[in-house]
Design a protein around this nucleic acid. Structure first.
Length: 717
DNA sequence: GCAAGGTC
């Protein structure tokens, strides 16, 4: 008797083998694919891995037309580029199956896992899937795996397999046929062949990006006013805000300023509150992707790739997880002791080890197959990690450590200042006890606004009360990180595919912009065309209806053939109409202008907007993020003694030097727009008050006095 | 050449 256990991936095969072996399993390999042999209860057991899906759907007929419904399962290496490594896994499973007379599927217990097991049995092993048993476990611990071994399900879960197969078929029917239809329409109208695509996830994702684009295009800014009080205490200046944050009427703002100016101003009330802030929950993939984006500017795809490399080197746990919880039986103490071998984590790890009880915070989300992402305790050798890997590793380690740390304690202070019949609020905040911020503080930012001590009733030295005109802003553009979040919230795509689907939208030319995503005219028109002809493909409701059907199939309330047949009929109708209107749809895709909802922009404004955004992207670049908080100081202000710093005009993006005490001090100097600015610390000897800066442009360097009226000449260095 | 879903 030999039993073959099929796991979803190599690492899981290893874990199953080690859990079930009496003693140690023997690691062998075939076609460079690792597998394991062991004895259990007098039986020889082989544990071998798949690598995710080994089979995929492909059309039986290789002509590029539509509609196509005649599809079959084929090995992924024959259907997709870059998947040749899968061949070795299929070959290995096929060979091992010949030695076996009992088969057990031990893939993840979900619909995709069931399909992986089903197709592996049927096509790679050449055995009847109904002959196989099922190991069912929700954690990869020895205990769970042994329990699963002794409580084998007599068959695989055919309801789940059918639901999964149906999902594959429906996605293929809708996605491939509509992608072909779009591409064909465009070719009909333009004579050119451009690959267009859409699908159950791409469609709604592009749609919500388009909606945001339209909101921005249609946005009409409305003016409002804010009122501020600048006051002085112990020689320092503070700004208090009027209790009503926005005033929509300028006359009202004027009246309030006039009345408030009459005074007298005094401290009416002081409110001090303390807040405990718990550490953030352990990382699921989506949260790691967002954090890596905001800390380092990495795209979600890049973060997943880096995390996968760390995982392959055993430095962190499996990254494709939606769990925010750490397993209870994980040896936290051991991991902390190992992390303490690295100098940068040593003090933190030691402090936590001294706490006695190690109980991590956890988030709400869970994942049946994997825990949250944590460092395994394996230590990278110095210089082993690239900069990117080092960054992600640090993020994961610090997030893990801080989950065990004490809450931070914050103090929020509000000083209510009354002037005549009006009230202003001066707000302060500070951290009283750092707690987890000591470890993770570099990746989160809490305001530190220190206020001096005020007493209730004391009079306030008001320097100025003024109104400022502001404008409401359009909603912000999506970033790659916020797109992933939105997809999560809508429940479309999976943790493992969202980043990749976003990349597809870029590669189709539907969207552009590294940090602030803009929908291109092509992207706008694709959504417009689909909305008119196939509205369901840009709606999240399609995913919802798939899910309902899958649930019914799992519960054996409906047959998968029936669901597939229904989709086929529905699509046949839709695609027939699409084909009849192909030329018209293709012409609409070609139109130069975006649809009526978005105004065409003038050349000038478009050019300015793009360049501004590009500048913002560069400025907001990951490397400059930390620097941005510390502006470049080029000298002291001759008028008030403040710092002269390099600032950027919000509207034009052009740089200039201004005083850090703005708006109380209005000293500014123009700057050349090109070249690196290097402070010299010198004051101009000619005019005696403006700073001298060095400008470095390529290989040229020269020093200039910032004062335009000064006679000092440029000096080459 | 097309989807979305696993995975190295």
């Amino acid at each position: 008797m030999t039993t073959l256990i099929i796991a979803e991936k190599p690492n899981v095969a290893k874990k199953i083998a080690y859990a079930l072996a009496e003693g140690k399993p023997i690691r062998k390999s075939m076609n460079k694919v690792p597998y394991y042999e062991l004895m259990r209860d007098g039986k020889k057991v082989i544990v071998a891995p798949a690598v995710g899906h080994l089979y995929t759907l492909a059309p039986k007929i290789k002509v590029y037309g539509y509609p196509i419904f005649d599809i079959e399962w084929v090995p992924v290496y024959s259907a997709e580029k870059g998947k040749s490594y899968v061949r070795d896994y299929v070959k290995t499973l096929a060979a091992l199956a010949k030695q076996a007379d009992e088969f057990i599927v031990a893939c993840d217990y979900d619909t995709e896992g069931e399909v992986i097991g089903y197709t592996a049995l049927k096509y790679a092993c050449g055995v009847d899937p109904s002959k196989a048993k099922r190991m069912k476990f929700s954690a990869l611990t020895r205990k769970d795996l042994i329990r699963a071994w002794y409580n084998l399900e007599p068959t695989i879960n055919f309801g789940m397999a059918d639901a999964g197969i149906t999902r594959h078929v429906l996605d293929w029917y809708w996605g491939v046929n509509l992608s072909r239809a779009l591409s064909s329409a465009l070719r009909r109208a333009s004579g050119k062949w451009v690959v267009l695509s859409t699908g159950r996830v791409q469609g709604p994702t592009l749609k919500f990006l388009v909606e945001r684009e339209k909101e921005i295009a249609n946005f009409k800014p409305t003016p409002y006013w804010v009122i501020r009080m600048v006051l002085e205490k112990d020689g320092k200046k503070y700004t208090a805000n009027y209790e009503k944050e926005r005033i929509l009427d300028e006359n009202e703002a004027k009246r309030i300023v006039g009345e408030a100016r009459k005074g007298p101003a005094f401290v009416e009330k002081i409110e001090v509150n303390q807040q405990q802030r718990k550490p953030p929950h352990p990382f699921d993939l989506g949260t790691l992707q967002r954090e890596a984006y905001s800390a380092f500017g990495y795209s979600p795809k890049k973060t997943l790739e880096i995390a996968q490399r760390l995982y392959e080197r055993s430095l962190c746990s499996y990254p494709r997880t939606s769990s925010q919880k750490l397993p209870k039986n994980l040896n936290f103490r051991n991991i902390l002791q190992n992390l303490a071998k690295m100098p940068e984590y040593k003090p933190h790890a030691h402090e936590l080890l001294g706490k006695g009880v190690l109980k991590p915070v956890e988030g709400k989300k869970d994942d049946p197959a994997h825990p949250a992402i944590y460092p395994t305790g394996e230590i990278p050798k110095p210089g082993d990690l690239s900069k990117d890997e080092q960054n992600i590793y640090d993020l994961i380690v610090r997030r893990f450590l801080s989950a065990f740390a004490d809450p931070a304690l914050r103090e929020i202070m509000k000083v209510f200042i009354r002037s005549n019949n009006h009230r202003f609020i001066l707000s302060g905040a500070r951290t009283l006890r750092e707690g987890w911020l000591k470890i993770y503080g570099r990746y989160v930012k809490f305001d530190e606004v220190l206020l001096p001590t005020f007493k209730e009733g004391e009079s306030v030295n008001v320097l100025q009360i003024k109104r400022e005109k502001k404008k409401t802003k359009p909603p912000a553009r999506y970033s790659p990180a916020s797109v992933i979040k939105k997809m999560e919230d809508l429940g479309i795509g999976t943790k493992a595919t969202r980043a990749q689907i976003l990349e597809t939208l870029y590669s189709r030319g539907y969207i552009e912009g590294k940090r602030k995503i803009r929908v291109t005219p092509l992207g706008m028109k694709v959504v417009d065309a689909l909305e008119r002809s196939v509205p369901s493909i840009v709606s999240v409701e399609l995913t919802r209806s798939f899910e309902e059907k899958m649930e019914e199939i799992m519960q054996r309330k409906i047959e998968k053939e029936k669901v597939i047949e229904n989709a086929r009929e529905q699509l046949t109708r839709i695609l027939k109409e699409f084909k009849e209107r192909e030329l018209e749809i293709g012409k609409a895709l070609l139109e130069k202008l975006i649809d009526n909802n978005t105004k065409p922009r003038s050349k000038a404004s478009k050019a300015r907007e793009l360049s501004l955004e590009e500048q913002e992207e560069i400025k907001a670049g990951a490397e400059s993020r930390l620097k941005k908080r510390e502006p470049l100081v080029v000298g002291k202000c001759p008028k008030c003694g403040g710092d002269l710093i390099v600032r950027y005009n919000r509207r034009t993006g052009k740089r200039f030097v201004g005083c850090s005490n703005w708006p109380n001090c209005n000293v500014t100097y123009p700057l050349l727009q090109r070249g690196e600015i290097i402070p010299t610390g010198k004051v101009c000897p000619e005019c005696g008050n403006a700073p001298i800066v060095k400008i470095k442009e390529g290989n040229r360097e020269y020093e200039v006095c910032l004062n335009m009226e000064c006679n000092r000449k440029r000096r080459a260095r």
